[in-house]
Design a protein around this nucleic acid. Structure first.
Lengths: 204, 204
DNA sequence: CTACCGTACTAACGAGCGTTAATTGGTCGA
DNA sequence: TCGACCAATTAACGCTCGTTAGTACGGTAG
């Protein structure tokens, strides 16, 4: 009953969150430039100008989606590796949460990877900085493992891109209604990550 | 001297190929909907309507880029596995040519993976069919290897997506001016592919 | 020299975009 | 019951887009 801005009657209320959700679905499907605000409005069964009661601009919609997602990715990485000293398990958990996010937040992930170039400054720089930080952290993880001899890679940089982008692509094929849960896929991908990084672990 | 439509004078001639090349660069950078034909024209130092002396529409430009690339991907796959009976070397070569293509045809690869949804029928269906065929072939390769016991995977479908999308993402980070050549990256990625597919081969 | 063909140009179109302004109408607290 | 507020509406804006029409020009073949 005390939900935020709940509709008293029969139909769902239009809220800032509802607008962002509709935009997220459409941006993911057709891209930022390929989506008209009239389509977002139609999905909410209102006219286009009414959107402006709940948002300030189309660009701000994109910025909010991409920045929030990027911040959460970094926070999840930090939480995943926090408290673990074993470099292999750190890499495994980093890959797991990254793959899991791309299975559970498919729309946001697709938008981040497709439309980041459409962002205006200064958000663009913030997002790129967060992404670089994440990439660097994973690369350092693999490089450390290689130094200690628990991982075997030719080039840590190449391996880290392989691992990260493999996880990203989960968003492109995963289906919540499919035979595997997001957690099961994330588990398999964390194993893939260790394999790519040349971890000589116990196979099954 | 006898090049196709060469300029007699000092500046490069505008040809259908030159238009497609300029469009490829811009579509890859800003997306199909994010690119205006005026930008394509500006890059060729002509006015927008002059483009129509060398093409028929913006949509046809996209269709040509995406369809050609998709057909070449399938042809390269067939050539790579042709004549090899060992399933492991078939998978290795399939991954190598796929990764190599994404390093050497970065722009086209980015467009295919970003703007395929902007294609009109019937090209859209043709492209999706070619993509499905490729995905299925790689999945079958991994499934066969798993059956024969030379590969170890939990789910061939998941592993095949992991392998393919990892190769695709080469287009997103590779730089021709970087420390590694396209061939070197492709070699590393073909090794990654075998690792993901659980091939217990000779390390190093 | 002339006629032609290809390529570039300017001008203009219809449509759709994101956004703003002004107005209506319904809900709820005083 | 009245007034305030909020969210929806219609109308309209300035702009950019892809595309078409009509025209000028310059090299080449006859």
């Amino acid at each position: 009953m005390a939900t935020v801005s709940a509709a008293p009657g029969d139909r769902a209320a239009v809220t800032p969150a509802a607008v962002r959700d509709a935009a997220t679905t459409l941006f993911a499907e057709k891209g930022y430039h390929g989506t008209a605000l009239s389509e977002v409005a139609a999905r909410l069964r209102i006219r286009t100008p009414s959107l402006y009661n709940h948002m300030s601009s189309k660009q701000e919609l994109l910025a909010e989606i991409v920045l929030t997602t990027s911040q959460e990715v970094w926070a999840e990485f930090e939480a995943a590796v926090d408290g673990r000293d074993d470099v292999v398990s750190r890499l495994r958990e980093a890959a797991r949460v990254y793959a899991l996010r791309h299975a559970t937040h498919r729309r946001e992930a697709l938008i981040v990877n497709r439309d980041v170039a459409s962002l205006d400054e200064p958000v663009l720089s913030q997002v790129l900085e967060l992404r670089r930080r994440h990439e660097r952290a994973v690369r350092d993880l693999i490089a450390e493992g290689a130094d200690r001899g628990v991982l075997v890679v030719e080039t840590p940089r190449v391996a880290s891109f392989g691992v990260l982008e493999m996880c990203v692509s989960v968003a492109r094929w995963f289906s919540p209604g499919g035979p595997l849960t997001a957690e099961q896929v994330a588990e398999q991908y964390s194993e893939f990550a260790l394999r790519v990084a040349g971890h000589v672990g116990a196979p099954t």
